[in-house]
Simulated assay, not measured.
Amino acid sequence: MRKIPIVPTLVVLLAVAIMIALGVWQLGRAEEKDALLQRYAAAGASTDAVAWPINGDAAERVLYRRSRITCESLSAMKQVAGTAASGARGWAHRATCTLPGGEASALVDIGWSAVPNPAAWTGGQVSGIMAPGPRLVADPPLAGLEPLARPDPRELPNNHLSYAVQWFLFALTALVIYGIALRRRWRDRS
């Protein structure tokens, strides 16, 4: 009679159960992410401006909506990789602005250029689209720069379904490997 070792079998079955639970969890996350992306797409169609968010949770609720700020002063200006509205690759000019009252700041992408030369901009009124970060992508661009590509929620990945498939495959693989190990053990003992 072939004996199945109790402790190793329980360990493998526990691991498989955990992997399956993680796969089911990722399926739920896929549905949540899809709903979030749909909400972002609907927000992009709104023309009403929203206030600059005071914290990360508030920023999450207003992504891809129009907003407006007053940049009282600049604390930093840098160039980061960016894409123009035309699709050309180059440099986004990003300012760190001090907001009225001096207690809060905002990141503002003021426009695009093909070269990383600093833009001559000292602040003022900015309107644009809220992007992840959070940052405001100026629309229209400022300081004689070209427009940046509009923030698009379709660029955010929803790869939770593939993660779920991976967890289910890990569980299946663990069972197959354990089955092979048991066969070899039984064969060696007979």
Rank of each mutant, 00 (worst) to 15 (best):
L107K: 10
A58Q: 10
R184Q: 11
F170G: 02
W52P: 07
S105I: 08
L182M: 13
R68L: 12
S162D: 09
L99T: 06
V80W: 03
W112L: 01
T9P: 13
V7Q: 15
L172R: 05
A76G: 02
A84I: 05
L22W: 09
D152W: 05
T96C: 08
I6N: 07
A181H: 11
G28T: 01
R185A: 14
D152V: 00
D57L: 13
W167K: 04
A30T: 00
N117D: 10
V50Y: 13
A85F: 13
L27T: 05
E60G: 07
A95R: 05
A58K: 13
R39E: 11
D152M: 08
N117T: 14
F168V: 01
L145I: 00
C71K: 04
L136M: 03
P140A: 07
G87K: 06
E146Q: 15
A58N: 13
A131D: 01
L145G: 03
G133T: 00
A21K: 10
T83P: 08
L169Y: 11
W121T: 00
I177F: 15
L22D: 00
C97A: 03
G87L: 08
L161K: 06
G144Y: 03
I6Y: 14
W121P: 03
R150G: 05
P147C: 03
R66W: 14
A30H: 11
R189W: 08
G28H: 07
W52A: 08
H160M: 07
A59Q: 01
R183F: 15
V11A: 13
E72Q: 13
A17G: 15
A164G: 09
Y178M: 09
N159Y: 03
R61P: 06
P100H: 10
I180L: 15
I6W: 15
Q26P: 05
R189T: 05
V12L: 06
T70V: 11
A42N: 12
K78H: 09
L13S: 08
N117Y: 07
M19E: 09
A181E: 01
A92H: 03
A58H: 05
I20L: 14
A42D: 04
V126A: 14
V12T: 09
L36P: 00
T122M: 13
N158G: 00
R61V: 04
A120C: 03
T98K: 14
G23Y: 05
V12N: 07
W112E: 00
R94G: 11
L63Q: 10
G28E: 03
M77W: 04
Y178L: 11
E60W: 04
E155W: 10
